[in-house]
Design a protein around this nucleic acid. Structure first.
Lengths: 226, 226
DNA sequence: CAACTCAATGACAGTTCTGTGACAGCGCCT
DNA sequence: AGGCGCTGTCACAGAACTGTCATTGAGTTG
């Protein structure tokens, strides 16, 4: 599932640029120019991160930040502050208030995206690129979880390793021999036919929720995912 | 316990200033001017955070960063990069490599301290004294209290440390080995199966009030909370 | 279509891994 | 000393997972 982002920015041109940039990165973006409304939106659908302009109407960014931190549901949502001022005092106040990072205008969208990714990598490892995804199938190696279409799928250890091996090489046809050494290890004396059985088990698991068979059998060559 | 900091900086004057500043803040500080040595120290006694100069001898800061990220034990240690260059390209490369934040020279120690605090608040809430919460389970490291659904839960010392370790890494699967070194310490010669027993005790405690089992067993991998 | 090759399946027995209860040792307090 | 709470280890039972095999089924070729 795409991570949701709330952008609070009252300069229409900049707001549009940001929305566009982050949507291109695959984020689901909510946006408002207004501090009060930002709090309402955040309470309604807690985003995975917030981009907050220091100078906005109604409530100052710093006040929004403070209130977010006081809200138990939202206290742990990462916040990146945007500010035109470069003075150190302001940066420090921002950080002390609970912002996780802060970016000085002018900045390029690319930098902001990189910073957000850094923050997300920390707070939501599952959302920040660690997770591998192919169509509606996702594998989070850190949490050791697999989902298809959002529904969790239970896999045994070998099935998990096998799937991980496939997902690291999407679309590629892997021979039984390659799979044996890759998944079972160099020195295993496993029967090659055993691969068939594990593939069958993996198939049963990831197709149990319905949906097409994502593993393709390539006769006399091997298997591929995707 | 004071959080440990590793400072990698080859300018002696700056290094000394940083060591002094952070020790005054109550951190335990390790320091080296050398990239290779930094990796060794980090592997030996994983610090709670790393301050890393971009331009250092032997290995560039960026390379050190990359290697740290590849090391499983150290992958989640927050890194703040120090750089004299202000070019955006470098910042982005730094962040993409896995740094959590980056500070441009010249900077005041006070700003660096504020930034480190912001990063730590996010990654090691316990060190910042913040109470951590996962669903209806909360742990207050300062008061040494644990509650589930508002009801207080009594834990033994080891159970408490184990739970804290889990809550600092929610959702993450931790191997028995990682738990032994993380909860019992590097040099303990504890039987790995002992982890099972403590997990069982912890489970019994936090599930005693009713509610689902929050600890997930991941066969042949370890346990995770959440 | 028949022969042949390769893949899918179901059954199964062996192995590996986890959950548990029991127990002895330790440090602390009374 | 005796009681108490906490810990680490062990042994055992049960659960989960795995590799193999025999059989069935699908695809290919002449």
């Amino acid at each position: 599932m795409a991570p949701t982002l709330l952008i609070v920015e009252d300069d229409p041109a900049l707001a549009e640029l940001l929305v566009w940039s982050f949507e291109a990165e695959g984020y689901k973006v909510l946006q408002t120019p207004d501090g009060e409304e930002a709090l309402l939106i955040a309470a309604e659908t807690p985003p995975d991160a917030i981009i907050l302009d220091w100078m906005i109407e109604q409530l100052s960014g710093i006040e929004v930040c403070r209130r977010l931190r006081r809200h138990p549901e939202l206290a742990s949502v990462p916040i990146i502050m945007l500010t035109a001022r470069g003075e150190e005092e302001d940066r420090i106040r921002g950080l002390e208030t609970g912002a996780d990072d802060y970016v000085t205008k002018p900045f390029s969208p690319r930098e902001l995206i990189a910073r957000l990714a850094a923050v997300m990598r920390r707070t939501r490892p599952a959302l920040a690129g660690q997770t591998m995804r192919i169509e509606d199938l996702e594998l989070d190696p850190v949490a050791h979880r697999v989902r298809r279409d959002g529904k969790e799928i239970a896999l045994g250890p070998t099935e998990f390793r096998l799937l991980q091996h496939f997902m690291e090489r999407p679309g590629r046809v892997l021979s039984r021999g390659q799979l044996v050494t890759g998944v079972w290890g160099h020195d295993s004396d496993i029967e090659e036919r055993t691969v068939d059985v594990q593939v069958k088990r993996l198939r049963a698991a990831i197709n149990s929720t319905g949906g097409r068979d994502m593993i393709r059998t390539v006769r006399s060559a091997g298997y591929s995912l995707g």
